[in-house]
């Protein structure tokens, strides 16, 4: 103890680097707004002043290159599926996807006879959190986002992976 005692100012953080990175990443996941249908309205409501996503560090971005999380909000058509994939590939690592609502998760009402609808966005991009609902209320989306934060926090980006 003698070496470190009384050597620092009082603003030093002592924590493991993994936890520090997890904390930093999980508390500022900027999201890429991907409003495709009615779920987008709820997503906007979530970002607006009443529910205020800013308090958990989330800011909507319009470019995939500035975003960490992609919230796929709404019906993904076959035509859009290729674009969703392309935009996901343009995001910088680490990147996460939230599938918001029934349509993005499984095709929703277009599930059986919707020839033009992708039956779940997880067919084209890996999904981290599914938020059920048609559309989900802002509370539900926030719950999903908090779940995602837990997931990011639990990641250990610096630790060597053992097989």
């Amino acid at each position: 103890m003698g070496l470190l005692e009384h050597k620092f100012q009082d603003n030093v953080v002592v924590a493991s680097m993994d936890k520090l990175l997890g904390w930093a990443r999980s508390t500022s996941p900027w999201f890429f707004q991907f409003g495709l249908a009615c779920c987008a309205i709820e997503m906007m409501a979530t970002a607006a002043s009443r529910h205020d996503l800013m308090r958990i560090g989330m800011i909507p971005r319009s470019s995939p290159r500035q975003a960490d999380v992609m919230i796929v909000a709404g019906t993904v058509t076959m035509k859009m599926a290729l674009r969703v994939k392309k935009l996901y590939e343009q995001m910088a690592n680490p990147k996460y996807v939230i599938s918001m609502g029934s349509c993005a998760t499984s095709g929703g009402p277009y599930w059986q006879y919707g020839y033009h609808v992708l039956k779940g966005v997880d067919l084209v991009v890996p999904v981290d959190v599914y938020v059920p609902g048609c559309p989900p209320r802002p509370e539900a989306l926030i719950e999903g986002l908090l779940k995602l934060q837990e997931k990011i926090q639990a990641e250990r980006p610096l630790t060597k992976k053992t097989a």
């Binding site: 076959m78 599926a81 095709g107 599930w111 059986q112 992708l118 039956k119």
Partner: peptide, 15 residues
């Protein structure tokens, strides 16, 4: 009758 795949993505319901 809908096509089976579109650019490698399965079109009919799969799950």
């Amino acid at each position: 009758e809908e096509q089976k795949t579109y650019h490698g993505i399965v079109v009919p319901k799969v799950k």
